[in-house]
Each structure stands twice: as structure tokens, then as C-alpha cells.
Design a protein around this nucleic acid. Structure first.
Length: 400
DNA sequence: CTTCCACAGGAAGGTCTGGCGG
DNA sequence: CCGCCAGACCTTCCTGTGGAAG
């Protein structure tokens, strides 16, 4: 135990590279958002009518991950909220939801979240949806206010787009002068295409697109955050540029860039280094990818794990190129060997799609003419990650 | 040109769990 | 306790289809 005490004491005494690690976290909002002035102003212009008690258009914001969508919306909303407090008779109420994190993917859950946010208790299941809708309607109708509903990661709502329809139509039914304005934030550039046309026309709002950052822009952003995050001059030249370059290769993802920088610094910190070097960034890059994949695999349902195990096994005999049929046959054999009831072909097909979205396998629909239409399936992980995956699956499935 | 394979993937519905109000 | 509800997870049944083979 004396050893532990020593470890902690050393930890406390050691000079950390970090001054404020929070500045590198995804949720951190810096004072100024670099390279997003245009989008910020556009959004502010659209929302400004709220201050004069006019109803603003609904807004759809698209852009890939880590291009500043959430940050800009939060920033503008905060400012708007501040000004409206002093200038309007109308109250402004901003309701922000992250749909993916809070699993808001059905109409019931969206309504329930809204009602809860407005201060009424709602069970997470048990009630008919219409009852929750009535509760929402009452809550909005009773307090005269403008409600700005922000649905972040709205892709999760795709299957329940009728909820969006009802939400946008609620304005027509209100008898007091309350109103509801919806801002949807989506990572999918073609979000609207995947939505029911009826919903699309009712939503009918402004569309704002956020482009990717390029490497120099990412460097600026990193430098801004690094200044807050680190103690003086711990960055060796080239570190920021390296993070920016790696993230720019991906798709100009600032979240990825910040992640790289943070993890690299953690690596350096743990190793007791006084300077953060480009080499640390290399280590961070590998670690981030491997860890993300491992987390995903560990939390996979047992059936999906068995399926993944099947793909790994087939990879060796098929040169990493297999069809759905091959996988399904082998999968039933795997199930037998671990006493797991095999699922139907249809279901397996869906599970394969899920593994594809997780990036663990790669699938592509191909037609082999006379020999049918199927998906080419290949394992998308290799090297260290693959070894770890095998290890995890062996433990989880109690294999061999 | 048609045929026809081996699936993709939509629709509907069943079963189970967890939770509601009365 | 009951009858009802939402949601996760599956099954069953189905229609649709790109392109090599004939």
C-alpha cells in the first residue's frame, strides 16, 4: 500500500502538461468560434425575428461530424437568450436535445423529453402517445412563450419523422400566442431526402450547410484551444500541424483533431515527458481507433458477436471476401458450436448492416449476374485491433 | 433479347419485458 | 391484481433487382 501512496504523491507533485484539459473536450465552448463567422451570422439573422415576437422559420443544419454545428447553435442560442431577457415581453425558452445520446428515436420519446423539459413528470413507457402529446400541448398553451427546440443528431429521428411533422404543426393549433420553432442538426448531408415528403413540406424551413474545415483552419482552432489547455510552451513544433493534417485527411473533423491532441498529451503526460512531440500524436492516432473499435465490440449483443466471429473465421479461408450466404451458413455452424439459437437469414442481414455502420465490417451490394445479387462482405479491422477483437470475442463467447 | 439467381430490404405482425393508472 | 402501452428484438412473407448466362 505504501507504493500506492507514493504513486499518488508523485502524481500530485509532478508538473502536468495540462493547465485546463477541459478546453480540449468536445463539449467545450470557446469565446470565439474561428472560421464560423459566416454561419453564425446566418443563423443569427434567421433567429433574430424572435426578438420582435415574430415566428422564425424552422431550420435544418447539415454538415459532417466536427464541423462546428452544435457549437454555433449553442453559441447563438445563448446570446439570443441573453438579449431576449432584456428586450422582449415574450419569454424565450430554449430546449436542447441530443437525440442520439438520449435515444430520442420515436415520437413518444421526443414528446416525453419535451414535456419533461417543461417541468411535467412523464413515465418513459406505459402511457399512450396521444396522452403525452396532450400534455405537451397544454404545457405550451399555458405559458405564453417562444419555444426554440434544438434537435441535435436528428438522424436518430429518421424512423420517427412523423414526430417532426406533429411538432411543426403544433403552431397551427395553439390558441395563445406561443410558438414553436425547430432546429434540426444532422450529420447527414441528405437528411431531408430520407424524410417523408409530407414531413418535408411541413418543416419547410431554411437550410444551413457547414463545410468541412481544411488543415490550416484546423490548425487555427487547435492553436486557440491549446493556448487555454496547456501550460507554457510544451508543444514541440509540428504537433498542431500534424493533428490538423490527420484530421483534415479524414473529413476536416475538428472533434477528431482535438481528440488527437488531447490523447497525445495524455500519453506524453503519463510518460512523464516535458514536451509534446509529433511522435506522441502517432501513438494517439493508433490508440483512438483501436479503443473505439474495442468499446463497440465489447458492448455488442451476443448474436452480433457470434456473427463477427464468423466473419473473422471466414476471412482466412476466403481472402476476406465473402457473400451473405457464405456468412449465414458458417454462422449457423458457429451457433451450434456455442449453443446459441441461430437467427433467420433476414435478421442476420440486418445485423450485418449494423456491423457495417459501426465500421467493423465493410459491405457493398454487388450483382453477380446469373449468380444472384448479394453483398460483398469483408472485415474492416486488422493488425493490433484484430488481435484484440479475437481475444475479446473468445472471452465473451466462451470459445474453444 | 429474356431468364433467373441470390439475395436486398420493405411491411406487418408476434413475443417478451418493463411500466402505467385504476 | 388487471388491461393497456411502448419498445426491443425477431420472424414470416413479400416484392424488387443488376447483370451473366443462355
Amino acid at each position: 500500500m505504501g507504493q500506492l501512496k507514493q504513486l499518488f504523491t508523485e502524481f500530485l507533485e509532478k508538473e502536468s502538461l495540462f493547465k485546463n484539459k477541459e478546453a480540449l473536450r468536445p463539449g467545450y465552448l470557446p469565446e470565439t468560434l474561428l472560421h464560423r463567422t459566416h454561419q453564425t451570422e446566418q443563423l443569427a439573422t434567421i433567429l433574430a425575428p424572435i426578438l420582435k415576437d415574430e415566428t422564425p422559420s424552422n431550420i435544418l443544419i447539415t454538415g459532417l461530424t466536427g464541423v462546428g454545428k452544435t457549437a454555433v447553435v449553442k453559441h447563438v442560442c445563448t446570446e439570443l437568450g441573453g438579449v431576449s431577457k432584456t428586450s422582449t415581453k415574450h419569454t424565450l425558452s430554449i430546449l436542447y436535445f441530443n437525440c442520439k445520446m438520449n435515444k430520442i428515436n420515436t415520437e413518444y420519446r421526443l414528446l416525453a423529453s419535451l414535456v419533461r423539459e417543461l417541468g411535467t413528470r412523464v413515465p418513459k413507457t406505459g402511457l399512450p402517445t396521444s396522452e403525452v402529446y396532450d400534455a405537451l400541448f397544454k404545457a405550451i398553451n399555458n405559458h405564453k412563450a417562444t419555444y426554440l427546440v434544438v434537435l441535435d443528431e436528428a438522424d436518430a429521428m429518421e424512423q420517427a419523422s412523423s414526430a417532426l411533422y406533429n411538432l411543426t404543426r403544433i403552431n397551427d393549433q395553439l390558441v395563445n400566442r406561443s410558438r414553436v420553432c425547430v432546429i434540426c442538426i444532422s450529420n447527414k448531408l441528405n437528411f431531408m431526402d430520407s424524410i417523408d415528403p409530407k414531413v418535408r413540406s411541413s418543416f419547410a424551413g431554411e437550410e444551413l450547410h457547414f463545410p468541412q474545415y481544411n488543415a490550416p483552419q484546423l490548425s487555427d482552432i487547435l492553436a486557440q484551444r491549446a493556448a487555454e489547455a496547456f501550460t507554457e510552451a510544451v508543444l514541440e513544433p509540428g504537433v498542431i500541424e500534424k493533428c490538423a493534417a490527420l484530421a483534415a485527411q479524414e473529413h476536416g473533423d475538428a472533434r477528431r483533431a482535438l481528440n488527437l491532441l488531447r490523447v497525445a498529451a495524455e500519453v506524453a503526460d503519463r510518460r512523464g515527458a516535458v514536451k509534446l512531440t509529433p511522435e506522441h500524436v502517432n501513438i494517439a492516432e493508433e490508440r483512438i481507433d483501436v479503443e473505439a473499435a474495442m468499446r463497440a465490440i465489447q458492448t455488442l449483443p451476443r448474436q452480433s458477436q457470434a456473427l463477427l466471429w464468423t466473419v473473422i473465421r471466414l476471412r482466412e479461408t476466403t481472402n476476406n471476401k465473402m457473400a451473405t450466404g457464405d456468412v449465414f451458413d458458417e454462422y449457423t455452424r458457429v451457433c451450434e458450436s456455442i449453443t446459441l439459437t441461430p437467427l433467420t437469414h433476414r435478421r442476420v442481414s440486418d445485423l450485418l448492416s449494423e456491423l457495417d455502420t459501426l465500421g467493423i465490417i465493410a459491405t457493398r451490394v454487388v450483382s453477380k449476374g446469373r449468380y444472384g445479387r448479394t453483398r460483398d462482405i469483408s472485415l474492416a479491422i486488422g493488425g493490433k485491433a484484430l488481435l484484440k477483437t479475437k481475444q475479446i470475442l473468445r472471452e465473451e463467447l466462451l470459445l474453444e
